[in-house]
Design a protein around this nucleic acid. Structure first.
Length: 853
RNA sequence: GGGCGAUUAGCUCAGCUGGUAGAGCAUCCGCUUGACGUGCGGAGGGUCAGCGGUUCAAGUCCGUUAUCGCCCACCA
């Protein structure tokens, strides 16, 4: 048995304990069909950067569930890994290059990719290191990366399958384009911001010279690409003009006036300029009316096909165009108006809707089963409300643009034939066109949306498309723990991918959490500089304290503020537990810890009964994903019940067996939450017998109804109330702590040794004092206590206090009597509730009698 | 324009299926009480945002209002 130091030192302990777990191989998932499976795949962190506190939240939740289930005897695996994060990582490396005065084009594709891999290696390993610092019990032997060989094979297989099914297609459609990242984006990758802007009213002269139409637009620069002006078909103001034409100012192009339902009569002037290449609605209108598509902005959002404006950047072009229109007297007026601007979720640049040839996933057929499984409960969200968010999105989802004009990512497995134009999509790299047989083919340079590969994560990590034992055993996974911000990006896409390729849900439960904010409730961000490095917190307070901070006092799905002082309180808790263990070790030293129920006192049965209750509750809470509530109950059981009372009892009446047992059970219960300290203590206990007898593989306690002792609970709680009453009395009377006195008790019989010790008594007498007049009195619901302290007490104050308590009791009695006099209450409330109210009344009445004595 | 969440002690937040409000921190008083001052004992502090309803009983369910926040949406 090792002597424990007086203060717990997480910095010394954690690395040592973590190594012990690794050496024991306890994290390794084993396919064991004798056990029920439990699997979690990590939401793979992006290799863009090291982890922040949000990841600490993700992974603490996963680790708690994983450790709990492992201790419950499940065949557990937690698969770790990282995500290549195509666009985000590419931006990072390009930024780095920019500092060297270079662009990716200077390096060329291969050299650039080598640079990105370098970045990936650096941050990928840092991330894994950080996950370990947190205590994550992930199976490192199965660590994956979304661009490793296995994932690449899965991506390739999925792409080909969907293509062959006609669910992946190439099309020239309007998409979101980021001029800074110079790539297409999916709808989900565009963030909408409300911005102040202008609505410019511009006159388009009628071609016949009979006047003009005024159109209102927020994007005057796109007028260079206008191919019509549209009005509502039932708008009588303009019906006579439909079929005629206007002359597009600046470009002097004659464009038709058309009628389309899309136009709202009441908005602006009721006339809309139609720019099919740069507005999603206009694009649709253009298709309906067979309008020409005139692209006027290039990949950098510089003007093309715009005559004298060619080469101008879009906002520069706007200025010039507005100035020119003003000069021509065609700018009727300018109205300020706030409107939504789409921004690239990675770089914040205003996104340009642009027509472009891209690859798409046809969503309707995929969405259908993905909607069904959530509707019928085969897959559930925790908290439940997120299923609504999810369904709303899935029910309205549009085709998914999956091609990105980037270099970092899975290159699209499609080869274009320069001779016949046919596209060959295949599992193996082709050397000739499958249509004309010529070798003059070229691979599509684009890569896939990064989420295309993460969508496959829950099955690709188990070896899919191979049918592996791991896949059979662990798919569908049990739980996934993402933040709500990636429900669309990731959760939704995993669900339809799982349904399509595995024929089953990817996970039974999506346990959604919120965001970690700073202590003022602000989002943590680089620019604010308010980000917190988990390692700093771990260094200062220990990983266990960080984990508890993250879990306690937060509710699932809601954002939380990170308050360092809260870590301090859990560090203190860790220290409390540590010292409780020290006490236990000291007490049991040289004593028998034999389990002998015949020797149990009421106090022993009390703690066992309380323990048993907490065991039941904690398991139930964990089952319901109420991790914070479970942790809080354990906190209070350890501190309030075990330390404040049972350990204090033990100083007067020791049962080494129960003391040690209870500590052991506490360690097991707490282990998923605070793995390091609990394991460390466990290793010093005689309960831990062998070298491989780690706490983390002990059986998690389960509730045992034979361990309920209501009588012991009642009698001990009565004792606790008496002790409190005496302490209270002494504090109120400012009795010096060293001053002991006789305690008189009437109405109950207690363990005198305990009462003597905890109530600072010199002696306990179970009778009313002979000199009541010279005593101060305290009452509990089942007994009266006196201290002969008349000389130390302000008698006036004491009378006042008693009077006040009397008043309070009277009020309560009145309330209870009214309640019990209510025939409806008696008739309708459950019998147990009525009985409880009756006994409350009885004890209140008894109290009143005693107060009156 | 839809949808969702929040509003509880000075601060940050818990309170699952309704049964007379809790924690941590902060505050105040006292303390070398046989593990712990990262501690011990004691105390104060809330008309659970407002209004209405259901119920024997509402922080908890329903409706409504207000303030704050988030998500989604093709009115230029």
């Amino acid at each position: 048995m090792r002597e424990l130091p007086k203060t717990y030192d997480p910095r010394e302990t954690e690395p040592r304990i973590y190594k012990r777990w690794l050496d024991g191989g306890y994290f390794t998932g084993v396919v064991d069909t004798a056990k029920p499976p439990f699997s979690i795949v990590i939401p793979p962190p992006n290799v863009t950067n090291q982890l922040h506190l949000g990841h600490a939240l993700d992974n603490t939740l996963q680790d708690i569930l994983t450790r709990w289930k492992r201790m419950q005897g499940f065949g557990v695996i937690w698969v770790p890994g990282t995500d290549h994060a195509g666009i985000a990582t590419q931006i990072k490396v390009e930024e780095e290059l920019r500092k060297e005065g270079k662009t990716r084009f200077d390096l060329g594709r291969d050299a650039f990719l080598e640079r990105v891999w370098e970045w990936k290696r650096k941050y990928g390993s840092r991330i894994i290191e950080q996950l370990k610092l947190l205590g994550s019990s992930a199976d490192w032997s199965r660590e994956r990366f979304t661009m490793d060989d296995g994932c690449s094979a899965a991506v390739r297989e999925v792409f080909v399958r969907l293509y062959e099914k006609g669910l992946i297609y190439q099309g020239n459609r309007i998409i979101n384009w980021c001029p800074s990242c110079t790539t297409a984006l999916s709808d989900a990758e565009v963030e909408h911001e409300e911005r102040d802007g202008n609505l410019w009213h511009i006159r388009y002269p009628l071609s016949d010279g009979s006047g003009y139409l005024t159109v209102a637009t927020t994007r005057p620069e796109t007028m260079l690409g206008d191919s019509a002006v549209a009005v509502n078909p039932s708008d009588e103001r303009y019906s006579h003009l439909v079929g005629k034409s206007v002359t597009l100012p600046l470009m002097n192009r004659e464009i038709p006036i058309i009628a389309d339902d899309y136009v709202e009569q009441d908005f602006g002037t009721g006339c809309v300029k139609i720019t099919p290449c740069h507005d999603p609605n206009d694009f649709e209108v253009g298709l309906r009316h067979d309008l020409p598509q005139i692209l006027v902005l290039d990949e950098h959002a510089h003007v093309i096909n715009g005559g004298e404006y060619n080469g101008l950047e879009r906002y520069e072009a706007r200025k010039r165009i507005l100035a020119d229109l003003t000069a021509l007297g065609l700018l009727e007026r300018t109205e300020t108006r706030s409107h939504n601007v789409g921004e690239c979720y990675r770089c914040g640049t205003t996104v340009e809707p642009i027509t472009s040839k891209q690859w798409f996933v046809k969503m309707a057929p995929l969405a259908e089963p993905a909607i069904e499984v959530v509707r019928d409960g085969r897959m559930k969200f925790v908290p439940e409300r997120f299923s609504k968010t999810y369904l709303n999105w899935m029910e309205n989802v549009r085709d998914w643009c999956i091609s990105r004009q980037l270099w970092w990512g899975h290159q699209i497995p499609a080869w274009h034939c320069r001779d016949c134009g046919h596209v060959t999509v295949s599992r193996a790299d082709p050397d000739k066109c499958e249509h004309c047989g010529n070798a003059n083919i070229e691979r599509d340079p684009d890569v896939l949306d990064t989420w295309f590969s993460s969508a496959l994560w829950p099955f690709e990590v188990f070896g899919w498309p191979e049918r592996t034992p791991e896949l059979d055993y662990w798919y569908p996974t049990s739980v996934v723990c993402p933040g709500y911000e990636i429900i669309f990006f990731w959760v939704a896409r995993m669900i339809f991918s799982g349904m399509e390729h595995m024929g089953d849900v990817p996970f039974r439960t999506a346990f959604i959490h919120g965001m970690v904010r700073d202590d003022q409730g602000r989002k943590m961000s680089k620019s604010l500089g308010n980000g917190v490095d988990p390692q700093e917190v771990i260094d200062a307070y220990g990983a266990d304290a960080l984990r508890m901070n993250i879990v306690v006092g937060t509710s699932p799905g809601s954002d939380m503020r990170f308050i360092p002082a809260k870590c301090e309180s859990f560090r203190n808790f860790a220290n409390k537990l540590w010292n409780a263990a020290r006490f236990v070790l000291m007490q049991i030293d040289g004593k028998s810890t034999e389990w002998n129920p015949a020797s149990f006192s009421e106090l022993d049965r009390w703690i066992l009964s309380k323990l048993n209750r907490v065991v039941g509750e904690v398991n139930a809470n964990l089952e319901g994903f109420e991790l914070g509530i479970a942790a809080e109950k354990l906190y209070s059981f350890v501190w309030d019940d075990f330390c404040d009372w049972y350990i204090e009892f033990s100083k007067a009446r020791l049962n080494a067996g129960v003391l040690l047992f209870t500590l052991g059970e506490i360690l097991k219960l707490l282990h998923p939450f605070m793995p390091f300290i609990t394991e460390e203590i466990w290793q010093s206990l005689p309960l831990c017998t062998g070298d491989t007898d780690a706490l983390m593989i002990q059986a998690y306690p389960i509730r045992d109804d034979a361990e309920n002792f209501p009588d012991a609970e009642a009698s001990t709680e009565s004792l606790i109330r008496a002790v409190r009453a005496i302490r209270n009395l002494r504090a109120e009377k400012n009795v010096p702590p060293g001053k002991r006195s006789t305690v008189y008790v009437q109405g109950a019989q207690f363990d005198a040794a305990i009462l003597t010790r905890l109530a600072f008594a010199s002696e306990v007498v179970f009778a009313a004092p002979p000199n009541i007049a010279e005593c101060v009195q305290a009452t509990t619901e089942d007994c009266t206590l006196w201290l002969p302290l008349a000389e130390l007490v302000d008698l006036d104050a004491e009378r006042q206090r008693v009077a006040k308590e009397r008043e309070r009791t009277l009020a309560e009695i009145e309330k209870l009597r009214a309640k019990l006099a209510n025939t409806e209450f008696i008739a309708k409330a459950p019998a147990a509730v009525v009985a409880a109210e009756r006994s409350k009344l009885a004890s209140a009445e008894a109290l009143l009698t005693r107060l009156g004595e």
